[in-house]
Design a protein around this nucleic acid. Structure first.
Lengths: 180, 180, 180, 180
DNA sequence: CATGAATGAGTCTTCATTCAT
DNA sequence: CATGAATGAAGACTCATTCAT
């Protein structure tokens, strides 16, 4: 196994365990076992357990924001934008349940970049008359909270039932849509 | 200090510390110090650290459900019911931030009883034509998630700004209201 | 065994082991075994291994200086003073061989106070015409070095043969005596 | 760099580090870094860390004895012999402070050969009537101890002030000279 | 020959739990 | 009942040594 492979294996093992048992609940030897390496090897790649945690969080927070904030389709409406953001977030949670749980467990999910996008969406929707005036923070709290709430409904590590995700999407839009 | 007083002090200290640093991040001697008792005393009231955690969770989950699910005012409409539930949840989070954080941190917030109430509300609202058909789980996820999301916006231990709470309440109703 | 007894046992065990194998060559569990206590107990009395070492050094350096620098007999001559200092140092090395070895191993043997006494002796001896002019540092180096050299001759933990000690004392006086 | 060069670099690095931090306080990777070689390389030249230490001690103890015990000048008197031995020892300590410190730190400085020379000097001096009867061990302890004592006076890695060395030499001769 | 990534036994230290006072 | 000194298993981290490249 190459050095990069081991580094990745360590990150993967740590992610799974931190997501399942938390940082303090996970012992370094457990991570080593999960990664299939010796304990000492972990310290060749990360100076401390904290550093491993930090890198892991930075890595996945970045990836989460990166996936959610990809360019919107051309000619998108605010409604389509909201739907797109929501689906991307749900897709991330479905594809990387451990990463999602880990990020939710340990504080804000890369707040700044997402919040910016929510601000832009709120402004845009209001300009177009499609959305009622809504604080960006409220919008972010709605999306993130709804996703976290749905994840809780599912069994641990369970995926969000697509039907519920679609139902929620409809609710979310109505939550912020301008009254007809 | 009476025996009950000590027991309460231990529970209070543990709540604060578990909320701030997590179960695994909190040492029993820390709890003892926070409670103003000797280490050994803790073990006169709780057989293990886990048992203390369990009792604490049961206690607060019960209290949370108890406060939120108090009888609704007579002649309430579905809209008023939703608002009442939301305000009670927000009030709990504002009044007992440590308890709220602790409950959110450690898995489901006494899911069953709340879910039941959401089910009842969804049925009721649909019967009256005030709400669109909505799965109870989605409703619960919306409320709980929105609250958690708002708490995250606030500084650690900070309270939710009342204005945001009201704005959110409006969104939540629209999310599930029947289209006019 | 009382708390003070345990503390003392730890200090004693550490002294023996540090003297025999050095600070870095001694493991904390070894100290615990030598002291007849559990590993954790050591940390109830000393915050770190380094702190234990520090206290040990302070303790014995003080005791060494205290024993050597006790008041000289009245009507003592410079010659008698030198003899007294030397005998006290040798007595300390004979009575507490581990402590002596430990102090020698780890840098200066409480240099300042002893050096002061050597300075006083050198001045005194010269004023009386009994000693030739001699730098205090040279005098200290002579005494301490001679003692360390004799200790080396003896087997590890072996005592200095009294005959050699007396012979050395004669040499030391001649080393600094004024020429007849 | 040639093989011999690497071997020498390792010995040099180890000497410096062992002198400064002791055997147990020095990590093999540190030695490798100081020597400018890879860790594994050390094990191509020395089977274990202990073996490296052993060779180092043998090497320098031999060199020390070799330098001190070079042939004395023809027509030397006992007094000149003592002075010569002392100056050679001081010169060694001045020229190779790390080596001197290392040898002093770790037990006897190649006792046997030096002791033999001291014995010969003591016998010779007595036969000539220049020295009082003195045990060889005492003579050795005086010289070595005086040197070690002077080294302690100097700052770490500091050289012995020549004036002190000369003053000491005078003392040493008087210590063992026959009374005039 | 030289390298340095990998190893895992061993290090210092913490902490849940017990029990004599 | 309350205490806190004592315990030792377990945690994070180090380091002498090996071996595939």
């Amino acid at each position: 196994m190459s050095g990069l492979g081991k580094r990745q294996a360590i990150l993967d093992g740590a992610l799974m365990l931190f997501a399942a048992k938390g940082f303090d609940g996970t012992a370094v030897p457990e991570i080593a076992a999960a990664a299939g390496v010796a304990v000492g090897t972990i310290y060749r790649y990360f100076p401390t357990k904290e550093a491993l945690d930090g890198e892991l969080r930075a890595l996945w927070a970045d990836r989460f924001a990166g996936e959610v904030l990809q360019p919107l389709p051309a000619n998108a409406t605010p409604r389509a934008a909201l739907r797109t953001y929501w689906r991307r977030m749900a897709a991330f949670a479905r594809t990387h349940p451990s990463a999602y749980r880990y990020l939710e467990l340990n504080g804000p999910v890369e707040g700044a970049r997402i919040l910016q996008a929510m601000q832009a969406l709120a402004d845009w929707g209001r300009r177009e008359g499609a959305m009622k005036p809504v604080t960006a923070g409220v919008l972010q709290a709605l999306l993130r909270g709804a996703l976290a709430g749905l994840m809780r409904l599912a069994a641990p590590d369970g995926a969000i039932p697509p039907a519920l995700a679609e139902e929620m999407e409809d609710c979310l839009w109505n939550a912020v849509a301008a009254r007809g």
